[in-house]
Simulated assay, not measured.
Amino acid sequence: MGSAPITGGRDTAAAEGDVVVFLIGVRINRWRAVRHWLPVVAAMPRMLKELSRDGESGLLSLRALGGGPRVHGFVQYWESREKLLSYASAQGREHHPAWSAFNRRARSAKGAVGIWHETYIVPAGSYESVYVDMPTAGLGAAWGVEPIGRHEDRAAQRLAGGAA
């Protein structure tokens, strides 16, 4: 996002319907246990590459989360809960063997590496966004942006669909 072009003016995300937000990350708990944490850290780029190449996967957008040298994470926006869950359980995709390997490794790793994820299904009308002189980001990167209309100037108005 650092070198992305700035869109002028005030925009909001053009999302419609429910929004699926998935947060995922890994935490290196013991630096010296490289053989336990390196495969976990290395699995994420493979999964993200696979998802970005597959336009039907349902992954709309992602962004790295800061967290220091121990923590690596991403916020992801998905087309639907069904597509997220389908990817997570698909036998022939990168996630399934990575998850199985993590679970096997976790038994012997004794806390050397941790993973976390959170899934949010945000109902239509329960999210809002504003981007002022910003490169496209977040929900706007996932769904595109549109100019804020005069009846959507405030966050309360956007949350109420312009009715506030």
Score class of each variant (00 low, 15 high):
Ile6Asn: 02
Ile6Glu: 02
Gly8Ala: 15
Gly9Ile: 05
Gly9Trp: 07
Gly9Thr: 07
Arg10Cys: 04
Asp11Arg: 12
Ala14Ser: 03
Ala14Leu: 01
Val19Thr: 11
Val20Asn: 09
Phe22Thr: 08
Ile24Val: 14
Gly25Glu: 08
Gly25Asp: 08
Gly25His: 08
Arg27Met: 04
Arg27Glu: 14
Ile28His: 03
Asn29Arg: 05
Trp31His: 06
Val34Leu: 12
Pro39His: 05
Val40Gly: 06
Val40Pro: 10
Val40Ala: 11
Val41Ala: 12
Ala43Asn: 01
Met44Phe: 13
Met44Cys: 04
Arg46Leu: 07
Leu48Trp: 07
Lys49Asn: 09
Glu50Arg: 11
Glu50Asp: 14
Leu51Thr: 08
Leu51Cys: 09
Ser52Tyr: 08
Ser52Leu: 07
Arg53Glu: 15
Arg53Thr: 14
Arg53Cys: 15
Asp54Gly: 00
Gly55Tyr: 07
Glu56Ala: 13
Leu59Gly: 04
Leu60Gly: 03
Ser61Phe: 10
Arg63Gly: 11
Ala64Tyr: 14
Ala64Pro: 14
Gly68Phe: 06
Gly68Thr: 10
Gly68Gln: 07
Pro69Lys: 15
Val71Lys: 03
His72Trp: 06
Tyr77His: 12
Tyr77Gln: 08
Trp78Lys: 00
Trp78Asp: 00
Glu79Lys: 05
Ser80Cys: 09
Arg81Leu: 15
Lys83Asp: 00
Leu84Ser: 01
Leu84Val: 03
Leu84Asn: 00
Leu85Tyr: 12
Leu85Asp: 15
Ser86Asp: 12
Ser86Glu: 10
Tyr87Trp: 14
Tyr87Ser: 10
Ala88Val: 12
Ala88Asp: 05
Ser89Lys: 14
Ala90Gly: 06
Ala90Met: 06
Arg93Asn: 12
Arg93Pro: 11
Glu94Gly: 04
His95Glu: 01
His96Cys: 06
His96Asn: 02
Ala101Ser: 10
Phe102Glu: 10
Phe102His: 09
Arg104Val: 05
Arg105Thr: 08
Ala106Leu: 09
Ala106Gln: 11
Arg107Met: 07
Ser108Cys: 13
Ser108Val: 15
Ala109Arg: 08
Ala109Gly: 11
Ala109Ile: 07
Lys110Glu: 09
Lys110Ile: 00
Gly111Asp: 03
Val113Ile: 08
Glu118Pro: 05
Tyr120Leu: 15
Ile121Asn: 01
Ile121Leu: 07
Val122Leu: 02
Val122Trp: 02
Gly125Arg: 02
Gly125Val: 04
Ser129Met: 04
Ser129Arg: 05
Val130Asp: 14
Tyr131Lys: 00
Asp133Gln: 15
Pro135Lys: 01
Pro135Val: 01
Ala137Ser: 14
Ala137Gly: 10
Gly138Ala: 11
Leu139Thr: 05
Leu139Phe: 08
Leu139Ser: 07
Ala142Leu: 05
Ala142Pro: 03
Trp143Asp: 03
Gly144Asp: 02
Val145Met: 09
Ile148Gly: 01
Ile148Ala: 03
Ile148Phe: 02
Ile148Glu: 05
Arg150Pro: 02
Arg150Thr: 07
Arg150His: 03
His151Tyr: 13
Glu152Gly: 13
Arg154Pro: 01
Ala155Val: 13
Gln157Val: 00
Leu159Gln: 10
Gly161Ser: 11
Gly162Leu: 07
Ala164Lys: 11
Ala164Glu: 11
